[in-house]
C-alpha cells in the first residue's frame, strides 16, 4: 500500500530536529527506525502532515557509560543495543528482551528509543524499562527534562513526550549488589508480539530476595509493575513455594485486553505462570 502524501524533513542534529518538528504543522510524526510508523502509514492508519526522519542525527546513536548509569541513545538500533558490552554488563535484561523483538531484519533497523516512545503495550521494551527503573530524557525547544519510567508511559500508544518534544536518550541505572534478571515472553510464532511477557529483576541476599521488580507486558494499556508480587517477595526466602505463592498476585491491578490471541482471563492466568517462571529464573533457582 502507498502512504498518503506527506512533507519530509531530515535533520542532522537534535536542535534541527526540534526545529523541524516545530515547523512541521499540526500533525508531525518522528521517524526513527520506521518499523511501526512506516507500516501504519502504508495502511493509512496514520497520515501525518510531516515526517521528521532522525536517521541522520548521529548524536542520538550509541551507548555510553555515565558513572552510575548507562545511557542509551534513542536512535540506537536493537541490534546495536543487544550486542553492546555496557548493556550486556549492566542491563543484560535489555539484551535478553531485545533478542526476542520481531526478527533480524526489524532488529537491524528498529531502534530502542523508537520502540519505547511508540509505547505499544505488546512491545517488549517498555516493561523492561519499567522493571529497570530507567529514566527518559526528553528534549524540547525550551531544554531537556527527565522523567521516570513510571511517569513516561501514560496510556495506549501515549507517553510523557509532549507535542514538539523528542525522546533523546534513556538512562539505565547500574545495579549494585547481586542481581538476577529474566524476560519470559509468551507468543505464538517467533516474530510475533508478546501475548503476555514478564520482566523480572531480582536482588538476592543471603538466600533471600531483597528486592524484586517485575514489569508486565501487554497486561493493560501501558506496561505495568506487578506491585503486589513485588511486595510479597521483598525480604522473602528465595524458594519455589514462596515465589509461586507471590506470583499468584501477578494479575492484581491489571486490565488486559481480549483479542484473537487471548481473552483477558487467560492473560491474567499467563501473567501468574510467567511471573513465577521469570522470578524463579532471576532468583537463580
Amino acid at each position: 500500500m502507498i502512504p498518503a502524501a506527506f512533507e519530509y524533513a531530515r535533520p542532522t542534529t537534535v536542535d534541527e530536529a526540534l526545529q523541524a518538528i516545530a515547523a512541521g504543522g499540526d500533525d508531525v510524526k518522528v521517524l526513527a527506525g520506521g518499523q511501526s510508523l512506516i507500516p501504519v502509514m502504508r495502511l493509512r492508519l496514520a497520515a501525518p502532515e510531516t515526517v521528521v526522519d532522525l536517521g541522520r542525527v548521529a548524536e542520538l546513536r550509541g551507548v555510553r557509560d555515565d558513572g552510575d548509569a548507562i545511557v542509551i541513545g534513542a536512535m540506537t538500533t536493537h541490534h546495536d543495543v543487544m550486542t553492546d558490552p555496557l548493556v550486556q554488563q549492566y542491563a543484560p535484561l535489555i539484551a535478553e528482551a531485545t533478542e526476542t523483538v520481531a526478527d533480524r531484519q526489524v532488529r537491524a533497523r528498529g531502534t530502542f528509543g523508537g520502540a519505547l516512545v511508540h509505547a505499544d503495550p505488546a512491545g517488549d521494551l517498555p516493561a523492561v524499562a519499567l522493571a529497570l527503573d530507567a529514566e527518559f530524557v526528553i528534549a524540547g525547544l525550551e531544554g531537556r527534562r527527565t522523567v521516570s519510567a513510571g511517569e513516561f508511559f501514560v496510556d495506549y500508544l501515549t507517553t510523557a513526550v509532549e507535542e514538539g518534544e523528542l525522546l533523546v536518550e534513556i538512562r539505565v541505572p547500574k545495579l549494585a549488589g547481586e542481581w538476577g534478571m529474566r524476560y519470559e515472553k509468551f507468543n505464538r510464532v517467533a516474530q510475533a508480539w508478546s501475548i503476555v511477557a514478564v520482566a523480572a529483576v531480582v536482588r538476592r541476599e543471603n538466600g533471600h530476595i531483597a528486592e524484586a521488580r517485575i514489569g508486565l507486558t501487554n497486561m493493560g494499556s501501558t506496561p505495568l509493575r506487578a506491585t503486589a508480587v513485588e511486595a510479597a517477595l521483598a525480604g522473602a526466602q528465595a524458594s519455589p513455594e514462596t515465589i509461586a505463592a507471590a506470583a499468584r498476585s501477578a494479575a492484581e491491578g491489571t486490565s488486559p485486553s481480549s483479542d484473537l490471541n487471548a481473552q483477558a482471563d487467560y492473560r491474567e492466568h499467563l501473567a501468574q505462570v510467567l511471573t513465577r517462571r521469570a522470578v524463579t529464573a532471576a532468583a537463580g533457582l
Partner: peptide, 28 residues
Amino acid sequence: PERVWRALHDGGDGGDRATAGTNAYGGA
C-alpha cells in the same frame, strides 16, 4: 495456547476465540 488451556481447564474444545485483532502494532 488459549484453546488448549481452556480445554484443559474448562473442558470442551477450547471454544471460540475473541474476534478482535491484536492490540499490538497500533491495532493495525
